[in-house]
Design a protein around this nucleic acid. Sequence first.
RNA 1: GGGGGCGUAGUUAAGUUGGUUAUAACGCCGGCCUGUCACGCCGGAGGCCGCGAGUUCGAGUCUCGUCGCUCCCGCCA
Length: 594
Amino acid sequence: MNSEPSTLSTAYRTHTCGALRPEQIGAHVALAGWVQNWRDHGGVVFVDLRDRHGLTQVVFNPEIAPDSHRLAHTVRSEFVLRIEGEVIPRPEGTVNPSLPTGEIEVSVNRAEILNAAKTPPFMVDELGEVAENLRLQYRYLDLRRQPMQQTLIFRHRLTTLVRAFLDQWGFLDLETPMLTKSTPEGARDYLVPSRTHPGHFFALPQSPQLFKQLFMVAGFDRYFQITRCFRDEDLRADRQPEFTQIDMEMSFVEPEDIYRLIEEMMAGIFKKLMDIELPRPFARLTYTEAMDRCGLDAPDIRFDLPLVDLGGVFADTEFKVFRGVLDTGGIIKGLNLKGGARLSRKEIDDLLEVVKVYGARGLAWIKVSAEGWQSPIVKFFSDDESRALGERMGAVPGDLLLFVADKAAIANEALGRLRVHLAKMTGLIDEEAFSFCWVTDFPLLEYDAGERRHVAIHHPFTAPRDEDVALLESDPGDVRAKAYDLVLNGIEVGGGSIRIHRREVQEKMFSLLNIGDEEAREKFGFLLDALEYGAPPHGGIAFGLDRLVMLLQRLDSIRDVIAFPKTQKATCLLTGAPSTVQARQLRDLGIKPA
RNA sequence: GGGGGCGUAGUUAAGUUGGUUAUAACGCCGGCCUGUCACGCCGGAGGCCGCGAGUUCGAGUCUCGUCGCUCCCGCCA
């Protein structure tokens, strides 16, 4: 019998275009869909009728239905067609094994063009590359194409699974406002003018952070929401001004509770959607370990190419460049690219360009061979230094040693990015692999030299680790946070923290961030007040849904997992947004035209 | 704000040191064709070479500017 749910049948159709099988042979059916292709043999006409469920070949035979056959000659690509007819087996030798419906076809008795279609600006049925601006302008046609359909259906299945999972774990899907209050810190807000309060503005949420904390104060205990967030910053291949978070928050938890929940959730997603067994528990690195070994707070642990600190080796060096860096508080780190000695001078110069992007001024190198070391800098090293260096880096003939000496932030990022670059370049990465890790114990604060104050690394509501609370007064930069990121293949897919649930700690935090009492009261008074009415210990995490789907589908652009994305200049090529508005609208808002 | 890449029929691309009428494939239009499914065969139309200046006897090609798309840095608690 038909395995397709009868809920898919409507006044127009009995089945979808992917449903029919030999079991339905003899049945009188009705199909509706788009003309994928037609093959007019003068006599018999074949039409491939497509909807999102599949493709069915329908046959117009002049001897069976002359009127329909005449109509079939006028059919063109992407016409919307409804047909009625009989499911028949395909004649001997004409079965199409590459189609799920390939054993049958529908012999048409009646046909109706529900809507004609202009010739599309690009071919909907072919998978070839089309300029992205054209795809975005005619997004409704682009979305009709197979890859986009597949991705958005995958996205739906993922969110459906997440909702079911979180429901099972006792989470409540609760909504938070889209029109809310602009707050200091963080990204630039998208602002919405208030008509009823001229000169006042709402902000679109950068995340539901404070509201979900208030849900915890309210005793809802476990909250989640799959919701839009807005940040008015410049775009990247993996960044859109509006994006979707899987946002969650729990009461009475420590980080271990979050890890357990999320590993279970991810394992379920991978198993059910991709039939992949994720190894558990996920790897864990502290922030410090991640920076030491990988130079980045989002380490890619699919391959082993550790950064090595060489401060000890060169502690007493007289090599001016290294000496200067060490004396001004910088670091010297290196990595050993096994087999890298075969790289040409040109290829090494190209590596310099890679690190320059991140601010490194130089990239020192040593080619290790049986005859000795080839390098522009070894002549400045003492014998002891060279020996210690070779030992520390495990250098053997054939290796290429690469170094950056700079401020810690620059040296780490430059080498960290170089590490990934080299791994991709030399095929060290298993492109099939999905490798998760937790990065834990982030610093709570970071000193911003430009603003001459501390800024929150995660956000101002993140709790310090209990044993570090005392350091808040003496060494705020050394305080570790109860904050964690989930990293997949070197890309942050989620992050969260245990929150501050006591008013005095939150006030202390604001003061460390140089947010005065008055400003704190004005911007965050409602939160401070709430913390005084029995706020439970709580914490949570949020995932970038778009980025997650992008990674799981092995896509390179976040735009390919969003139905209607913005261009890099944050415009919508489909609608033409943003646009000017009528003077009247501005007047109502008390805004003077620019 | 800064750096890089791209822009040629509807689409995807080719286009030599600057040199006749700017090519091809797919698509589109017309005709033929009763078992195709990348249908086939015959014929045809289709170009502001992103836009604007400049250099030149001559610009798709070189220069400058500009617009659009894109990748990256800054930015993104």
